[in-house]
Simulated assay, not measured.
Amino acid sequence: MTLAELDLTGDLARPARLTVPDLLRWPQHQVRVSFECASSGVQHHGFTGPRLYDVLAVLLGVSIDGTPLDRAGPQLVLPQDRCGARHISGIREIRLDGGWVVGRR
């Protein structure tokens, strides 16, 4: 089985290439999300994974409803998002650029 890879690039001291098993080494958090899909109605899912950035409440989902996302790759999950059509799946790269100060809102 080929594992999906996520590249972290940009203004980083140590750019990285991660797989879902790599992401499982970070503390895991769980969120339940619900959204209404025009074609299939209301859907409810539970995601588990490490937070991308705690202040933003973004989760890098490595499983959905208990099913690993090893082949598909992680998903960005925003628990407060009301519309599932905006979810981002199969994440392959996250690029971080300078100019941001951690902790500043």
Rank of each mutant, 00 (worst) to 15 (best):
R82N: 12
A72I: 10
V58A: 09
D97R: 14
P50D: 07
I94A: 03
R71A: 15
V55W: 09
L78N: 08
I91A: 07
G66Q: 03
G84Q: 09
F47L: 00
G41D: 00
I94H: 07
T48H: 06
S63Q: 14
H87E: 12
G99T: 09
P79S: 06
D65C: 12
V62W: 00
I88K: 12
D70H: 15
P74T: 02
G84F: 04
H44M: 08
S63A: 11
L96E: 08
G73P: 04
D54E: 12
Q43W: 04
C83D: 15
V58L: 15
V62A: 00
A57M: 03
A72R: 13
S89A: 13
D65N: 14
G98L: 08
D65V: 12
R86C: 10
E93I: 01
P74Y: 03
G41K: 03
D97Q: 07
G90S: 05
F47K: 02
V58T: 12
R92I: 04
I64E: 14
P79R: 07
L52H: 00
R82E: 12
P50T: 12
D81P: 05
L60N: 04
R82I: 06
G90C: 04
E93C: 11
G66E: 06
G49C: 05
V62E: 01
A57T: 10
R71I: 13
R51F: 06
D81C: 14
D65I: 03
R92D: 08
V77Y: 05
E93D: 06
L96R: 08
Q43F: 01
G99R: 06
S63M: 07
L60F: 07
G99I: 11
S63T: 10
T48L: 08
Y53A: 08
G99H: 04
V62I: 10
D97W: 10
H44C: 09
D70V: 00
P50N: 02
A72S: 13
G49F: 01
P50Q: 07
L52F: 13
T67N: 10
H87R: 15
L56C: 08
G90W: 00
L69T: 03
R92A: 13
V62Y: 01
D65Q: 01
E93T: 12
V55C: 06
T48N: 06
R71L: 15
G98A: 15
T48Y: 00
P68W: 07
D65S: 05
G73A: 07
G66T: 01
E93M: 07
R51W: 03
I91K: 01
V62H: 00
P79G: 09
I94C: 05
R86Q: 13
L59P: 01
L78I: 11
I94S: 02
F47T: 02
L96K: 09
G73F: 02
R82C: 04
R86V: 12
I94W: 09
G66R: 05
G66W: 04
I88L: 15
P74S: 10
R95S: 11
H87N: 14
T67M: 10
L96W: 10
T48P: 03
G98D: 08
C83G: 07
D81L: 15
G98C: 04
L60G: 04
